[in-house]
């Protein structure tokens, strides 16, 4: 019970932000909540947010763990491109679905291993270490696709982008499942605490006997694996691997999702759920802008302003101010309400 209260206290700002943004969109665009079923798949704007947000949400899962160790993974966008390229190549070469998926996921793990070795064994700063793959990764992807968009028509692979299970789009299922599995592993085992310990104080953790090198490598490999999943989804979505554009700049959206989710870039305490909500917040903003019908010249400005407002509201200074202005009673009611929202 105590844990649940703490948990809801941790994520209520993110949930509130998401609710406000969704509320704003539905005011501007009244048909927002219309959900129907088309082609055996749920269809509607909220589904779009979940579906389009899935790749960034997946990246954010790995990114959260990396950031918790006081690292950063700039390569995830490029890793998406590589893994998308590998899956398109594998399927067009006729390796069959499961070998192809295995190859693509292994490629992601290999990329993560590379990053992890640079960071954990060679002691290169994460931002520099992952920058290498960020720059080189698209080149590798282009080598695989030979510079063109490598298209495929394999229904099995396409399923991962535009298929559905029980009317729920596959990317959403993959995102939710991955989030749930990683959360379970991290919180049911001691990994979460050890990762946080590394992020807060690497040297002290080493001295306490934490196997910091192995854990760091594992964390970067998790990030690579999540990027591989996102890459497969992105390629399956457009039935082709676009080495130039797949996952382009998504590393920044993933980092933003983690930050909006309230995990500090200085490492330490993290919340995967909050990062996932952060990813949904970002996608809700994107979808809202598209639905709004504003000229595209305003897209980036609107997005920047909204994100700025979110970050300012979440800043420690602002929280102090808010606490100062709100009476205890109001705060109590507020958190009661939040508990109800979270409990189910």
């Amino acid at each position: 019970m105590n844990g649940l209260v703490l948990f809801s206290r941790r994520i209520w700002p993110q949930l509130l932000t998401l609710a406000v943004i969704v509320g704003l969109i539905s005011v501007m665009f009244p048909g927002f909540f219309d959900i129907s079923i088309a082609n055996g798949r749920l269809y509607g704007s909220p589904i779009d947010i979940l579906n389009r947000g899935a790749p960034v949400a997946l990246l954010a899962i790995g990114m959260t763990l990396v950031i918790a160790t006081r690292g950063i993974d700039l390569s995830v966008g490029a890793v998406m491109a590589i893994c998308g390229a590998v899956s398109a190549w594998g399927i067009t070469e006729g390796y069959g679905l499961f070998p192809t998926l295995a190859m693509a996921l292994s490629a992601g793990l290999a990329c993560g291993l590379w990053n992890g070795v640079l960071v954990a064994l060679l002691g290169i700063q994460p931002i520099v270490a992952t920058l290498i793959l960020m720059v080189a990764g698209r080149g590798i992807a282009q080598l695989i696709t030979e510079g063109a968009i490598l298209t495929f028509n394999h229904e099995g692979l396409i399923f991962f982008g535009s298929g559905s299970v029980w009317a729920i789009p596959t990317p959403v299922i993959i995102g939710v499942l991955t989030g749930a599995i990683v959360t379970l592993i991290v919180r049911r085992s001691a990994l979460g605490m050890l990762i946080e310990a590394i992020g807060i104080n690497l040297r002290a953790s080493t001295l306490a006997g934490v196997n910091t090198r192995v854990l760091l490598i594992a964390v970067y490999m998790t990030s690579g694996f999540c990027a591989a999943l996102a890459g497969i989804i992105a390629a399956a979505d457009i039935r082709g691997a676009d080495a130039n554009n797949a996952g382009l700049w998504l590393e920044l959206d993933a980092i933003l999702a983690v930050v909006v989710g309230g995990t500090s870039l200085l490492g330490g305490r993290f919340s995967l759920i909050a990062s996932l909500i952060g990813a949904l917040i970002i996608q809700a903003v994107n979808t809202g802008i598209l639905l709004s019908g504003f000229p595209p010249e305003f897209n980036l400005i609107i997005k920047a302003v909204i994100i700025l407002i979110i970050l300012v509201l979440q800043s420690p200074t602002m929280r102090t101010v808010l606490v100062f202005f709100s009476s205890d009673k109001a705060a109590g009611i507020d958190s009661e309400k939040q508990k109800e929202t979270v409990a189910p």
Binding site: R188, S189, A190, L191, L194, A197, A208, G209, L215
Partner: peptide
């Protein structure tokens, strides 16, 4: 708990 946990491994929380 940190040192003991690190010694018995991450799997057995």
């Amino acid at each position: 708990a940190l040192a003991l946990q690190a010694r018995i491994g991450w799997m057995r929380r």
